[in-house]
Design a protein around this nucleic acid. Sequence first.
DNA 1: ATGAAAGCGCTAACAA
DNA 2: TTGTTAGCGCTTTCAT
Lengths: 348, 348
Amino acid sequence: MTASEHPRMSDVARRAGVSLSTVSRALRGVPGVAPEVRHRVEQAAMELSYVISRGASSLVTGRTGRIAVIAPFLQPWFFGVAMAGIYSRLRSTGTDMVVYEVGDTTALSSYLRTLPLRRNVDAVIALSLRPADEELEHLRRLGVPVVFCSDEVDGFPSVFIDEAAAAADATRHLLNLGHTRVAYVQARDDTGFSWHSRQRVVGCRKATADAGLELVVVTAKTGIDGGALAAAELLSLSDPPTAIVTETDDLALGVLRTLERSRLAVPGVMSVVGFDDQETAALFDLTTVAQPVYDLGAQAAQLALDVLDGTGRTDTHLQLPTHLVVRGTTAGPRPTSSLAGPSAGESS
Amino acid sequence: MTASEHPRMSDVARRAGVSLSTVSRALRGVPGVAPEVRHRVEQAAMELSYVISRGASSLVTGRTGRIAVIAPFLQPWFFGVAMAGIYSRLRSTGTDMVVYEVGDTTALSSYLRTLPLRRNVDAVIALSLRPADEELEHLRRLGVPVVFCSDEVDGFPSVFIDEAAAAADATRHLLNLGHTRVAYVQARDDTGFSWHSRQRVVGCRKATADAGLELVVVTAKTGIDGGALAAAELLSLSDPPTAIVTETDDLALGVLRTLERSRLAVPGVMSVVGFDDQETAALFDLTTVAQPVYDLGAQAAQLALDVLDGTGRTDTHLQLPTHLVVRGTTAGPRPTSSLAGPSAGESS
DNA sequence: ATGAAAGCGCTAACAA
DNA sequence: TTGTTAGCGCTTTCAT
């Protein structure tokens, strides 16, 4: 893409028989250009297949027309969906989306430290990512436009769900069904426990506490395999639970796998609730908490856009609704709640 | 991120007591700077938290330090994994990744048409996307650096698998098991049939033809639901197949769902083979063709990088290996191959 | 409504 | 080895 081959604004100016600044004005659609002239300029630009060099204009305007999305991972379901949501809003304004993966804490902080200085983007959307407090303080002081998506952060525009309440809903569903021994599978990755993670246990614990019960918590690596291991751990307890809530659908799928391999009927012997409601949840007939991930992304993008055009305020906190989707993996506990009994193998 | 607040190169120059160009040279690490001076400059830059404005330098160098990834969708498994692969290579060179979703043909061609003119990126990686022939010709003439990932295109660097051979492998596996009525579920989205799609049927058809058999082909919308519908269609045939190959794992999952709801044993009554080997394939014990998606992305990124630094050639075609992963959804057909018993056609 | 001129922050000759 | 001088392609006062 050798720069020399592209027509420049002066080429358009010459062809339209006007000055450089007139072309600039005409093409940007600012008022103060005679309609006839504007048309001539557009014509010329079209004939030359002229497209403006954003780099050059951002050098003077200070705006890049780009927004960064930073995420701990690129691969998991959540991020793909959220990005699709973000992109949907961005595309309509012609804003480009540049993506960074900041898997571990050091990558994140090093990104954030150089952020205000690299004028590579106009704003940042942090996807399910919470920087350390001192980083946040630093960003706040600098007044850097960062929008948090799927996390609520003081002093920054944020879009999120009520994690604790959603998790509590799921737990209460189980409690109302009559379960008295409920376990929670918490995910931890290399970054430690995410914000989600911490909020969701709190919600579950509150729900069980309100019922005068205790919550059994085990931690697991993220993903299906992590869930499978966690379930094995729970099953080896001296007094196993009769219901399991997991932090994500992936974990629930793993739990289901272990259960099936152990020939423990679901929901006969064990009830399972996930979180996310991704496509596979329906496939497995998994009861789960649905969260509007696409919208989370779209709204975050909107907030970022608002901040950029001055419409936005840093204290916009947007909470999106979740709802429990009850499917076939939850039911009341068996009268005799021992895990001993024989049980039919369940579906594949 | 107001530009005025950032320290500029001249600030560093003043602080280090050297000239602008010395700072430029020192910071870029080009030879011809006294070690002592270089150190002083780096020191000054650090103290000021100076970070270079890429926009300004790309204005003069003509290089943006950015690569575009264009994909038809952002959400599906394949794209997340491929992007993670791309990113892994890009990050090490400090190249930014800007992502565009060009779902339909018009979005794609309008992107490609303005591409050479918008100097926003140094190169483009097209993910599982094949432009129309005239677009390709146009790009070839312009000499635009485009790398095709998961597709083989003449005159452009490409990274891909042997789609036809992989699909043929899957089919032969079934044939060797003794199946004589094999069906293929082909995916079609709004863009029509992708390149994959066309290649994979060819492979299946060749395999069956070589065995003197016919291949039953049905088309389906992409995704789990599409697969479920396709399976229903196949089950309602007067002479249903005993084995089904699908274009993707997602489709296979849908097929499995319909089969399960129809109470048709897998692989007892029906064998199923997917394509991709994503995480859920193992969960469902699905026999499938594994393709190295992450590597596909990483290699494509490498080719793009190579083209940029002059190392690359436009005729680099890289074929990556696939392999059939045999799991539990495939077995020989039953002796009496009629689909007796509870029969076809249930949906949701 | 239009044009001329002065940069935006950097790199790349060219001198020294 | 270092500094000086032009621009890169635009936007933006300030005149006209």
